[in-house]
Amino acid sequence: MALPHRGFVWLSMPKCASTAVEEVLEPHARVILRGEFKHTNYTAFTQRIEPVLAGGGHRRESYEVVCLFREPVGWLESWWRYRSRPELKEGPKAHNYTGDMSFTEFVDRYVERHPSLLGIGRPARFCSLQAERVGVDRVLRYESTDVWQGWLTEKVGQDLGFRQTNVSAKRPAELDPGVRRRAVDFFGPEYDIWAHLEPDGQWAPPADHLLSL
């Protein structure tokens, strides 16, 4: 969602409060991406949306590009829960159903890049430019609710009335320690970003911060 008149563009990373943020920002946004474009990543933003904003008089240096970022294994757990919805089992995307799969199996398949999970992507790639360096101007930690909600409230200039939406059903998420270690190794670039978020819940990456994806 683009709010260049408020000084920022919000990229909605999947499984990071996208619906809740969209709900409160929609009345204030100049550009709203829906459907298949809802989760536009940073590289796609530079190719498709940045030129549109520039044509409207909003040069890139006049606004920040911002996104939420979740603890990587927790982010993956959210995907596992989301794909366990009963309605998915019988629908056209039944091949994505995880209701009969343990979290350990799900993580193992993700790390092995099983075809059924390739559509999930990965957080570091979402916020990077051509998968080489962090491209967004500010990353906000999903778990630090007071930080990112406060940041948005200050930018928009009024109480936004956040509420929790689109929450997946709870399931036991036991994870084999060995598989967890594999996931942490796989998510090396993600945990690099995550480490910068731990002090105060947000990070403005330097332009030369490289990733190995």
Rank of each mutant, 00 (worst) to 15 (best):
residue 213 L to Y: 14
residue 19 T to H: 14
residue 138 R to Q: 06
residue 9 V to D: 01
residue 177 P to V: 07
residue 48 R to V: 03
residue 55 G to K: 10
residue 122 R to E: 13
residue 118 L to I: 12
residue 72 P to T: 00
residue 175 L to A: 12
residue 76 L to R: 06
residue 210 L to P: 05
residue 11 L to N: 04
residue 182 R to K: 15
residue 166 N to F: 06
residue 58 H to G: 09
residue 171 R to Y: 06
residue 112 E to K: 15
residue 181 R to T: 14
residue 40 T to C: 11
residue 11 L to A: 04
residue 5 H to N: 12
residue 186 F to D: 13
residue 13 M to H: 09
residue 163 R to N: 09
residue 38 K to T: 02
residue 115 P to K: 11
residue 146 D to R: 14
residue 198 E to Q: 15
residue 4 P to I: 08
residue 125 R to A: 15
residue 14 P to L: 05
residue 134 V to A: 05
residue 197 L to Y: 02
residue 94 A to P: 11
residue 189 P to W: 00
residue 119 G to A: 12
residue 154 E to L: 13
residue 105 E to P: 03
residue 187 F to E: 03
residue 177 P to N: 07
residue 32 I to V: 15
residue 163 R to P: 01
residue 44 A to N: 09
residue 213 L to I: 14
residue 164 Q to M: 14
residue 156 V to M: 03
residue 86 P to S: 02
residue 39 H to F: 03
residue 163 R to I: 12
residue 18 S to W: 00
residue 87 E to F: 08
residue 96 N to M: 14
residue 177 P to L: 07
residue 150 G to I: 08
residue 23 E to A: 15
residue 178 G to E: 13
residue 86 P to T: 01
residue 125 R to T: 06
residue 45 F to E: 00
residue 61 E to P: 11
residue 31 V to R: 04
residue 98 T to V: 10
residue 84 S to G: 15
residue 204 A to R: 14
residue 156 V to I: 14
residue 20 A to N: 06
residue 6 R to L: 11
residue 71 E to S: 05
residue 92 P to K: 09
residue 31 V to K: 01
residue 197 L to K: 01
residue 137 D to R: 05
residue 147 V to R: 07
residue 195 A to G: 11
residue 182 R to L: 14
residue 197 L to I: 04
residue 35 G to Y: 04
residue 118 L to Y: 05
residue 51 P to T: 11
residue 131 A to V: 05
residue 126 F to W: 05
residue 87 E to C: 10
residue 42 Y to N: 03
residue 52 V to Y: 00
residue 123 P to H: 03
residue 213 L to K: 08
residue 66 V to R: 03
residue 204 A to K: 13
residue 53 L to A: 03
residue 121 G to W: 01
residue 62 S to A: 14
residue 14 P to I: 09
residue 122 R to A: 13
residue 97 Y to E: 03
residue 140 L to I: 04
residue 124 A to H: 08
residue 191 Y to G: 09
residue 52 V to N: 00
residue 5 H to K: 12
residue 108 D to M: 08
residue 40 T to V: 09
residue 49 I to R: 00
residue 103 F to M: 09
